[in-house]
Design a protein around this nucleic acid. Structure first.
Lengths: 342, 342
DNA sequence: CTGAAAGCGCTTACAG
DNA sequence: CTGAAAGCGCTTACAG
């Protein structure tokens, strides 16, 4: 209500604006006496500094913004834990913005808003092609430090945290082959995301390298969202040359593939093996099937590192050499893969 | 990098600062000619307005902040969907701040930061006693519009969205009685939260009204977090006068109570009935038991309404009459309750 | 140790 | 329709 300013404090305590500022920010030397007077005035008035004025002159906000799609998506569980843990360990404020459905207009709005001096650095999660233009548009005028996760925009110089998707997918298929599978299908995700392409290529490379053929109908492309994994699996099951193993582009898809197999009266993994990717802690929509054998990416670590690295750069002042880190993946053996039973 | 300002634009296009401002904000009349010049300069320089300067003079940020504990907690699934959907439908920016572990210092930091002119309104979720002092401390100096969810701080005038917890718990116990249960225990949650107290009182009132005794050991108090529901359930199962039904303070606790019962070799609900509260879509830690019979609170709606109501108030300008809404609950019959089998 | 003054980048009456 | 000027609330050299 009152909207007290340092001017009021100065008048009330009989000192200059500069002194008030010094006391409030605890920088510069102020005598005990004046300091006490100012502090009393702060107490009396309930004064709180205006952040806008402060960041306007200081050209920094001590805050970091994080932009993700669909904050509610259980996929973000581990990533969020990482962001939050890192946030708790630094003095910067961390603010999250969620772009529902990945709507481009909305994402652009948030990116430009945050880049306009609302935060000192921005983390963007996701492998979205459309981010490139957005960033080229928003970044030149701002002095914000960017951190891209899972999005290696060529020629755009900023911090990047990536995982080795091709290698991860390759190793998954190798793992299935090691169990004796040769009829291995793939349900790939949204083909407009780099991750999807990379994982698809990992699958294809492994098949090729081992001299295995990608049989008719073995490549299923998801439409809409991961729930469509159910229908894609149904299609695979209807094939004459039904695969004995299916590698899915991510765990959410895999969880729906398992549902489809179980609903079709098959046992998983005895009748059909299914692999995912991510090692996502909370699967969507109360998945109750067997725990997915999958390729783990270090989501918690990535979340944690993104914030921690940015905080370090901000503290240092100039961020001339952006970080670029590629994380390795790892097979997690759980309950949805075994050898083929035919 | 460049940090272009309207001054640069004015110089570049040969007009005044005021005109530049008018063009950029599309308010006031500007001739086609000058407008085009300015727009060209914006294009050339990649100019983006400085939000800090803008909000300093306008005394508004067109943003709403949301403070919750542990954004990663699956409990927030529906609430977040509500927040996000509402955010997508309004022009305000919605920024989320997460207080890991509910740390009071950290929460205070975010509250004061946001209240200091970073946003125009703040939503706070949770039934935390400590919020009262925090709010009394942060609010007087700011002109931020507050919205409390599940926290009816007496004498603190602001928007409030509440649910009828006493009534909800009462109806749950009544429901169990309707199924023929008389030996009904209660696992209550964190006793420092109002919700817990209310739900406990609903349980006690229903027991009293129906002339049922709360038998020895039937009141179990959770320690630490919901995972302790497992141990509390074990305690109940060890009683000579083992209850035939257990009403839990929330679904997360109930999910652990079910685990404990199943692990003890009991069938749920045939051997013991268990009820929760919330109708939480995603249960923690890959819960695979039967779907919980529970008391639904309209989490999505509450999330949606909180943002929508604030946006409406902000648009109107003055928010003199705070909203206060109490939502009703509703029994959701699922798989964890049946009649007693003894 | 303290204060007067300039300035951060923008918007907004106020004249014209 | 356009511009000069004041001012939002704060911090920061610069003198003293």
């Amino acid at each position: 209500m009152s909207n007290v300013t340092i001017k009021d404090l100065a008048k009330l305590s009989g000192v200059s604006l500069a002194t008030v500022s010094r006391v409030i920010n605890q920088k510069g030397y102020v005598s005990q006496e004046l300091s006490a007077k100012v502090l009393r005035a702060v107490e009396e008035t309930g004064y709180r500094p205006n952040q806008a004025a402060r960041s306007l002159v200081q050209r920094r906000t001590d805050s970091i913004g994080v932009i993700v799609h669909n904050l509610h998506d259980p996929f973000f569980y581990d990533l969020l834990r990482g962001f939050e843990q890192a946030a708790a360990e630094i003095s910067y404020n961390v603010l999250f913005a969620s772009v529902l459905g990945g709507d481009t207009k909305s994402k652009e709005k948030y990116l430009q808003y945050l880049s306009g001096g609302v935060v000192d650095a921005v983390v963007m999660y996701g492998s979205y092609m459309s981010d490139e233009e957005m960033l080229r548009c928003a970044s030149p005028s701002s002095s914000v430090d960017y951190m891209l996760i899972e999005n290696d925009i060529q020629g755009f110089k900023c911090n990047k945290l990536l995982i080795n998707n091709v290698q991860g997918a390759y190793s998954a298929v190798e793992y299935l082959m090691g169990k004796g599978h040769t009829d291995i299908a793939h349900i790939c995700g949204n083909p407009n995301k780099k991750v999807t392409i990379d994982r698809l290529n990992g699958y294809l490379a492994a098949m090729r390298d081992k001299g295995l053929e990608v049989q008719d109908g073995y490549l299923q492309q998801l439409s809409a969202d991961y729930r469509n994994g159910y229908a894609r699996m149904k299609s695979l099951l209807a094939l004459k040359n039904r695969p004995t193993a299916v590698f899915c582009s991510d765990d959410a898809i895999a969880s729906y593939a398992v549902r489809a197999a179980l609903d079709a009266g098959l046992r998983v993994p005895e009748d059909i093996s299914i692999m995912g990717f991510d090692f996502q802690t909370n699967l969507p929509e109360r998945y109750r099937g067997p725990d997915l054998t999958t390729v783990k990416q270090p989501l918690y670590q990535i979340g944690f590192d993104s914030i921690t690295l940015l905080a370090g750069q901000l503290k240092k002042g100039r961020f001339d050499q952006p970080e670029r880190k590629v994380y390795d993946t790892q097979i997690v053996e759980q309950e949805t893969v075994c050898g083929p039973c035919r």
